[in-house]
Amino acid sequence: PSYDSMTEDRSIESPEHKRPYAEAQQLWLHADEATRDLTAGLSEQLRLILEPTLATKLRGDYKTGKRLNMKRIIPYIASQFRKDKIWMRRTKPSKREYQIMIAVDDSKSMSESNAVNIAFQSISMVSKALTQLESGQLAVAKFGTDAQIVHPFEKPFNTESGIQVFRKFLFDDTKTDVKNLVVKSLSVFSEARASGDSELWQLQIILSDGVCEDHSTLQRLVRKAREEKIMIVFVIIDCINDQESILDMNQVTYVPTVGGPPQLHVTKYLDSFPFEYYVVVHNIKELPDMLALILRQYFSEISSS
């Protein structure tokens, strides 16, 4: 399948801006080593959330089975033993299939805030943990001025894929267009869904320093994603420097007034953050629990709605 609007670069010797192979390899090995201990834990948490063991129920009307359905006994006798489907059997828990896209911010602000290490380690950890689960597909995307798939769903993920993905991340893009990312991702997901089955769960994990414009338009897009049953969770990689934390960042808005100049308001940046399910992470050790937290929250909210 080709994702028209989010095409993967398929050219062999791409003149595209990429990291040298050897450098990407080193980065992958470092990220891999740094996250080795954390990956198993994340994998287990994800297994519990993404593959719930459904209590096996006894169901159905069968000629043989595990347990008699008492309601069928009288009709059985009354029909001269013709209505003989009086047994119930255990049903197999239906296995959920999922598609998870990790979308990572490739803009320059990521390198300004030292989020690069955490981004690389996160890609390594999440991709390895998901690969261990073996019951879904993984894609990796990058975004900045534009959004691009750097590892498609159909391709299995291994060390070599990891290195190729790392080659594509330079963290020097001059814009952080999250709107564009969400729009394009929605079409990738809906295309993937069209050819899949209905039990397909689609999830996007966005990894970014969280600084983006136009929260109100984004809010509408997030709502649209939710309507299309696409889960989006946002992991904000915050800087270690206390004084520059996104938690304390403010923004300014100018509210029009009747017959006067617009009124200046200073508000907390995160108050208008358009992603309902988000966490703020300061170092890689926090990621497994934080990610599990928002995913669990998301699943429990949709199952109760």
Binding site: V211, Q243, E244, M249, N250, Q251, V252, L264, V266
Partner: peptide, 22 residues
């Protein structure tokens, strides 16, 4: 010391207004 996310169109006057507000 909180960081601020502001419009790039701001000039001295607009920045001064924000500062006075803070």
């Amino acid at each position: 010391p909180n960081p601020l996310y502001v419009p790039v169109s701001l000039k001295r006057y607009g920045l001064s207004e924000i500062l006075n507000h803070l």
